[in-house]
Design a protein around this nucleic acid. Structure first.
Lengths: 185, 185
DNA sequence: CAACAACCTGAGCGTTCGCACAGCTTCCTG
DNA sequence: CAGGAAGCTGTGCGAACGCTCAGGTTGTTG
């Protein structure tokens, strides 16, 4: 996924610019939703002329797909970081609970991606990347594949709950929920 | 939620027309997403002039909120029907698995609603209506509230999975997943 | 330093958008 | 059966939309 960091200074600047636009798109998505992420609005958010957006992303759809894919990248990486932590489950609970505050844009983008994938088969592999990553993360904790599918679905549901519930659960509450789903006695 | 069915024939026709527009909106959402549901597009889908949409829904936003709310109504009602069935859990699994085919528009609308609720506090009660209903449904099966929150989140996650996964699970598979989450041994 | 590639942008075209509004028909009520 | 409420729609305005394109600047390479 990550580009091998070009030596050419021009291309490097180009990559930086692309990233700038994607970040601006994420901020717009967080604030007003995917539908509000038009060429002009994103351009203004990034403080560049509208034609710059066209230069880097031939169509707005390309821009949106790029932003959603990048967001998915981030989540998969964070998940791997969770897996490498001292207490992976607690770390995951923390990540989930941050949907309330720090990572609102990312959660919104993730679910917009899922919604898009439901209509466009071309995007399904991107959704699968996440679910596969999540399944791999949970494998050490839940042996039975059916049960694991259930816990994975719960993780997705918890992200959403933290994003849109009036009184979203704290990290330790999410941790408790996850732990009770996994620990069977 | 349901209007007391007016005696006035004019108002009754009006209600029918409102419903017609909401249904058309749902079809558009299913096909091309919430962002595509503009006044003109919905009007064409419903085979009425654009100004008719303005007449019944002062702004497009009103139309979208009405459609999403109506969809939420449907889901809550279906959930109650599941609860009243012979095997509620199997019936719920069936409902979830229909996200793949019959109820695609409703699933999409439901998640669009959640995403909107994340940005607009005014819509949060609508999201809460669903989660509360789901919690009530699960109460007989899962006593512990934390565990129940986990299973509820899993239900939401399973809806999404059925909507956008390349090889969505069948009803009996969903049933197995739910049963293993609930039956602890 | 010539040649080229990548970056960059202002102007503008055609389309769609949301919404206002005046004026019409239909239907109920006193 | 008069009066009014509710339903209905064609017209049109200003704004935003996606996208094209000609032409300019900057940086790299042989």
């Amino acid at each position: 996924m990550t580009v091998p960091e070009p030596t050419d200074g021009r291309r490097r600047k180009g990559e930086r610019r692309r990233r700038l636009l994607i970040d601006a798109t994420m901020r717009v998505i967080e604030r007003d939703g995917l539908a509000a992420a038009s060429q002009r609005v994103v351009a203004q958010e990034a403080d560049v002329p509208p034609s710059t957006v066209t230069y880097y992303f031939p169509t707005v759809d390309d821009l949106l797909v790029a932003a959603l894919t990048a967001s998915n990248d981030d989540y998969i990486q964070w998940l791997e970081e969770c897996a490498a932590a001292a207490d992976p489950l607690a770390q995951l609970a923390h990540l989930i609970s941050e949907s309330t505050s720090t990572r609102r844009a990312h959660v919104a983008a993730e679910y917009e991606l899922f919604l898009m994938a439901g209509r466009r088969p071309a995007l399904q592999p991107e959704a699968v990347r996440w679910t596969d990553g999540l399944d791999a993360f949970l494998a050490p904790y839940v042996a039975d594949p059916f049960e694991r599918a259930g816990v994975a679905a719960a993780v997705d549901g918890l992200f959403l709950r933290c994003f849109c519930a009036p009184d979203p659960p704290e990290a330790d509450e999410v941790h408790t929920v996850l732990a009770r789903l996994i620990r069977r006695e």
